[in-house]
Design a protein around this nucleic acid. Structure first.
Lengths: 372, 372
DNA sequence: CTGAAAGCGCTTACAG
DNA sequence: CTGAAAGCGCTTACAG
């Protein structure tokens, strides 16, 4: 049974002042003489007074709570983002409500509604659909401060923080090309949502489709891959692109095994995220290809754990926690300045060289196909 | 700018009824004739009325929000627990506020205060100290429903859900002994908090120290290790116990390398958690010991990722998501029945046999030391 | 600097 | 079944 709480009225009575005065010193607003202040604080302390933030929020119209909608807190990607957000929130004594959408629009909608019911001061959303987002638009139009993270939404002009996927994939693949690789496989999800297709992206001359920023990160990373080839004056080979179509390490492994065992196997593989990387790792094991001796591997992921097992993997490391922190800061600024211009930010991942990208030319013969 | 919200008064005016009546139909409490109900609902719909849960909470004394205090959301262990909690919460349209304590009592205290300020209906806590927990006791005495997860607190008699660490470690190590292993290393954190020491646990005859359930899981798993030896009538060798003392894969690796290179190396290693496992994996790699040919490995962890690299590792898999779900259910029951007896629950982990535990006797010579 | 009064948006007895 | 009034625990003008 919850014990009866002591209210401002109780404190006021004991201190022989009005509730208004007690409220002013306890809530730290308005004037109060030092003497009265002392008296009230003493009474409050004696009664163990704790302010009721619910009542305060009802009046002030702010809850000092923010909400987050992400795909799945279990994924290390989101877990770190959340940690970054949480750090900023906790240091400002702001509550953080989290919800999972499982990348399903309907659940995302319900999450947004829950957060609006809770009257959060703002929300950070990793939208699961870049088009089908009427609920996000509605929330924005209702005046709820909002920051998009990792992905953007067409026509939703709010603060956003994502990764420079195109640029960093481009730079990473350029490194592979510079090392002499000419058959570089790309293993990526490249799901068919949002109207993007392999065909469309491959036939759009640089700098690629103008709406690329409203598509999933894996498409952006594919574009970087293509641009790197274009920059080097090398025609990309369509058969090197493994479109996994689902976010599954198992399917990725199957696709990778297939290409590794083909007549013209790749000498390097670029994986677009951690799940694809796990699949490719399993595939290299299955076909008996050693990294980096038989095949170079560049992963768009931190590879935190794989590092233990295969020290030589190159990685494009995503500053996930920092993205979360930045998202939280953008949101808090937006809350205090609701009418500022929306800011579109991209963070640049860090390319971690661990020795997997090796100069290829002198021993082209011995690599790739030969080992399999 | 947040748009003006429409209130019950607005709806009542448009429907030509009193606010009390409008409230009754909109809040779904009390009587209302079908005709009035229709009228009010129509008006509410036309005005886009959304109830203000803040006001409702203030009166009803419930927020339909629960809070969680964990060590670090980034750790896969906690991330899955949170996911389990979140699933139960979201399906009941209950908000979930999460906070990280980083296993520091002071941060845990601040987290608990934040949650109490938010007037959560209850909280799930993974306490970072089994003794120093006055803030938890205070919250409990103030009547806040509480469920402890993973660890318990001395003298705090509330619902708890943890793992049967002693029993499952005992069973796992028994399997190793049964396979013929006699030099089984244990790599565990075994930090010196709470007054438990190696000395104390080794000199307490079975079933071990009576307060073992109020110590960290790694101590409980050590006890299981010792009991398995006792059950088999085999004296455990103190030099086989690697007390890492910090939650660090790096230090674990150092300790493991040392014992693997000793004169009498182990033929099997039992690791007490995922971090220790990662360290041990790195160590086996460093000394060139193959798993399971040179050394058997049993990890108290899911080994989700290592499975990709080393298929043969045996694991004691913790039902983390289920623990989270169970914690949430316990909490919700406790909220609706505040005066029920506290329940102490233990979940039994699943032993996943992947072929690492091999019968040892026929080729004892070739194992362990020989390979190093 | 202090207090009486009104109000945030709901819900809850209490009459009718 | 419906409405007028009071109240949840605060904060906010407005007088004094």
């Amino acid at each position: 049974m919850r014990k009866a709480t002591t209210t401002i009225a109780d404190v006021a009575r004991r201190a022989n002042v009005s509730t208004a005065t007690a409220g002013r010193v306890l809530g730290n607003y308005g004037y109060a003489s030092e003497a009265v202040r002392k008296k009230v604080q003493k009474a409050a302390h004696e009664l163990g007074y704790r302010p009721n933030h619910l009542a305060r929020s009802l009046i002030r119209g702010e809850t000092r709570t923010i909400g987050v909608v992400i795909g799945d807190i279990q994924s290390p990607f989101y877990a770190r983002i959340i940690r970054g957000i949480s750090d900023v929130a906790q240091s400002s004594e702001i509550g953080l409500i989290i919800t999972n959408s499982d990348e399903v629009v309907d659940l995302e909608r319900k999450s947004v509604e829950l957060l609006m019911d809770k009257k959060v001061d703002g929300m950070i959303v990793s939208p699961c659909d870049t088009i089908n987002a009427a609920h996000l638009r509605a929330a924005h139009e209702a005046g709820v401060p909002m920051v998009l993270i990792d992905r953007r939404v067409r026509g939703l002009d709010v603060d956003s923080i994502s990764l420079d996927n195109v640029g960093s994939a481009r730079a990473g693949v350029a490194d592979l090309l510079r090392a002499g690789h000419r058959r570089i496989a790309l293993v990526a999800e490249l799901a068919g949502t949002g109207g993007m297709t392999l065909d469309r992206i491959m036939t759009t001359s640089p700098p690629g489709p103008p709406d690329i920023h409203f598509h999933y990160p894996s498409w952006q990373r594919l574009l970087g891959y293509l641009l790197a080839h274009h920059d080097a004056g090398i025609a990309p080979q369509p058969e090197m692109i493994c479109q996994v179509k689902s976010y599954s390490a198992k399917v990725a492994a199957e696709k990778a095994v297939k290409i590794l065992r083909s007549d013209a196997p790749p000498t390097a593989i670029f994986t677009a995220d951690g799940v694809m990387s796990a699949g490719v790792m399993a595939a290299t094991k299955e076909v008996g290809a050693r990294i980096p001796d038989d095949i170079s591997l560049l992963c768009f992921d931190d590879m935190d754990w794989m590092e233990f097992m295969v020290p030589g993997i190159d990685a494009i490391s995503q500053p996930r926690m920092q993205m979360g922190q930045m998202a939280a800061r953008l949101l808090m600024e937006q809350i205090s300045q609701p009418d500022a211009e929306p800011r579109v930010m991209e963070m640049v991942p860090r390319h971690i060289q661990r020795g997997s990208i090796r100069a290829l030319l002198p021993r082209e013969e011995g690599r790739g196909g030969a080992a399999l």
